[in-house]
């Protein structure tokens, strides 16, 4: 019988895999960037469950906030849709 922590870790890892696949599937690049931010947020939750709060704070601040903002700035300067020749 898994405990509560195992169930929470299981749910977080399933969500992590779903967001990571969503990053690849999305053709809209802003959607992909936001899915990457959600993946970072779930990863920081996993770090917090594994008792590494330092890494969790760094991941939440850098991965979820700053890289998403920088990706969206960069996508604004180029094209929004992913296109194939």
């Amino acid at each position: 019988m898994p405990g509560l922590v195992q169930i929470i870790q299981f749910l977080i890892l399933i969500g992590l895999m779903m967001t990571a696949v969503a990053v690849i599937i999305f053709k809209d690049l802003i959607s992909a960037a936001i899915a990457l931010g959600a993946s970072s947020l779930l990863l920081s939750l996993e770090f917090f469950v594994l008792r590494a709060p330092d890494v969790a704070i760094a991941e939440a601040a850098v991965g979820a906030a700053l890289t998403t903002a920088i990706f969206i700035f960069a996508i604004k300067a180029t094209e929004r849709k992913e296109g194939y020749e």
Partner: peptide, 11 residues
């Protein structure tokens, strides 16, 4: 970590 949080306020 603190510096990254302050920079997110800038964003």
């Amino acid at each position: 970590q603190g510096g990254a949080v302050v920079a997110s306020a800038t964003a």
